[in-house]
Structures are given as C-alpha cells and as structure tokens.
Computed example of a mutant assay.
Amino acid sequence: MSFRIGYRTLKTAVGAGLAVAIAQGFNLDFYGSAAIITVLCISVTRRDSLKVSWARVVACIIGMAISGILFELIGYQPWTLALIMLLFIPIVVMLQMNTGIATSSVIILHIYTVGEISTALIINELLLIVVGVGVALLMNLYMPSSDQALRTYHKDIEEHFKTILHELSVYLRHGESEWDGKEIYETVDLLQKGKNLALKNIQNHILRYEDQYYYYFKMREKQFDILERLMPYVSRIHHTVEQSETVANFLDELSKSVSPANRVPYFLERIHLMRKGFEEMPLPKTREEFEVRSSLAYIMHELEEYLHIKDRLWNQADKKKL
C-alpha cells in the first residue's frame, strides 16, 4: 500500500495546528481542545461541515448548561458526571444532533476538571468552540473541483451508449453479433459513480440543490433501464424481416446522435413515420414473422419511451444542457 497525503488530511493537519495557535494566542485554558473540535468538524462536503458544526455548537451549549447546573447542585463527583451523560445524550439524540456528543463531552470534562462553574470558564469554553468550529469552516472553504471527473464520466457514458445502440442494430440486421457485452457492466458502474460524484458536488454548494450533471446521470440511468429491457427482445430475433432493417438503421442513427444536443423531436417523428409505414405493410405470412414483428413493435415502443425520458428531464432541468 502506497503512502500518500490527501487534501482532507492536509486540511485537517493545518486546521488543527491553526486552531491551537489561535487558542494559545488568546491564552485560553485547554487550548488543545480547539484542535479536537476542528478535526471533528472537518467534513467531506461544505454543506455537511455546516450541519456538523451547527450540531456541535448547540450540543456544547446544552452540555454546558446541564453540567453546570448538576455539578453545582449535586457536586463534582464521578457519579454526577454519569448522571449528566444519562440526561445529556438522550436530549441531543432527540434533537438529532448526535455528532455533537463527542465535542460536548470534552467541554463537560473541562468543567469537571476545574471543579467550579464561572463566567470566565464559560467564556473560555465558548471561545474554544468558536475557534475550533471557525477554523474547520475556514478549512472547508477549499474543496477540489469535480468538474473534470464529471466530464469524464459524461463522455465515457455517452461512448458506452453509442456502442450498445450500435451493437443492438448489428444484431437486428444480421441475427447475430460477436459483441461481448462488457459495456453493459461498465455502464452500470459509470452511472453509479457519476451520480454519487454529482450528489457530492451538490453538497459542496451551500445554496445549490440541483446540478446539470445530476440530471444527466439520472436521465441516462432511466434510459439504460430501457436498453436493458430491450436486450432480451433483440436477442430472440433470429429471423430478419424487412422491418428489422428499418429498426436497425434507426438504432444505428440513434447511436451516432448520443450527445448533449436535444434531437428528441426528430427521432420521435422518425418513430411515428416508421410505425405508420409498418401498419401499411402486408400482414405477416408466418408465425415466425408475426413474432419477429411483434418484438420489433415492442422495441419501437421502448425506444419511444427512451426518447421521452430525455425530453422530460430536459424540461425538468430548465433546458440546461444534458
């Protein structure tokens, strides 16, 4: 296993040192705790960092209030500390601020160690929280850009879609194919990774709750489900008919047009004309031809839905490029 230092590790190390330096600069007691708070508040995304930091601040204030009251009323004893935890933990869990338990425990132990509650101690603990949380938020201002990786996933998925559509057209045209289907499994992986990264990218923007890449991966995921449904119907067509060539040509053209551009209206019109043309053709003469034409009709129906998915999400994304 190779040794490497990631950006989050670097931020954590720098943040811990900076928090201690600031706390020492203010002559705060227990200044090392500022580093602990900073380390605990540095998160994977900016939005998560804000959420965690808020939970820790509120939980610390609740912890100081409960411990200050009980220590003064009952005494600074280990069993008092146990009682405080019995009350404090369920309260923060009820408020859905579980992430603040560890930080608050440090603050509560400071009060227990000093053995008395005072204005100076409360100010000291509040400043430790402010320094620790503030430095963590400062460190989390930097997040590496995901744009290059998202563009790569976007490009790779489109290339895989082109290959899949083309290979389906080859099978319809010849009734066989040497394609090993590896793009199917790779596309599943690419879609999952791309969508996860797009969601993480959204979490790194405080006020943004949607993203053009998220819409893109969502669209392709739904379209891929349709391609998977098509495959059993395509694979059972071993006897080619006139309509097979027409649908194969359509798939081939569709494969060459997989891109961010919205050509849905053109291809929907093509399907409409194909269906109209098929209806005007003579009825099938054999059972085999009837089954092939039924499968082709189903394939056209699914391809129409494939196109409608892009059209719907195109509008949903407020005409952002997909």
Rank of each mutant, 00 (worst) to 15 (best):
M1V: 09
F3W: 05
F3A: 10
R8W: 03
T9N: 12
L18R: 13
V20G: 14
A21K: 11
G25Q: 07
D29S: 15
D29N: 13
A35N: 02
I37E: 15
S43N: 13
R47F: 11
R47M: 12
V57H: 04
C60N: 12
C60Y: 11
G63Q: 01
W79K: 02
L81I: 01
I84F: 13
P90V: 15
I91P: 00
V93L: 14
M94P: 06
T99A: 08
T103K: 04
L109H: 08
I117Y: 12
L121Y: 10
I123G: 05
L127Q: 12
L127P: 02
V131T: 00
V135C: 15
A136E: 04
L137R: 10
D156W: 03
H160Q: 09
K162Q: 13
W179Y: 07
T187L: 01
V188T: 00
N201Q: 11
M231E: 00
Y233K: 04
R236M: 12
S244H: 03
V247R: 06
E253G: 00
S255F: 02
S257C: 08
L273V: 12
M274N: 00
M274A: 02
R275Y: 15
K276H: 15
E280C: 09
T286R: 12
E288K: 10
E289L: 03
F290E: 00
E291T: 13
E305R: 13
I309Q: 08
I309W: 12
R312H: 14
K319S: 11
K320C: 10
K321N: 15
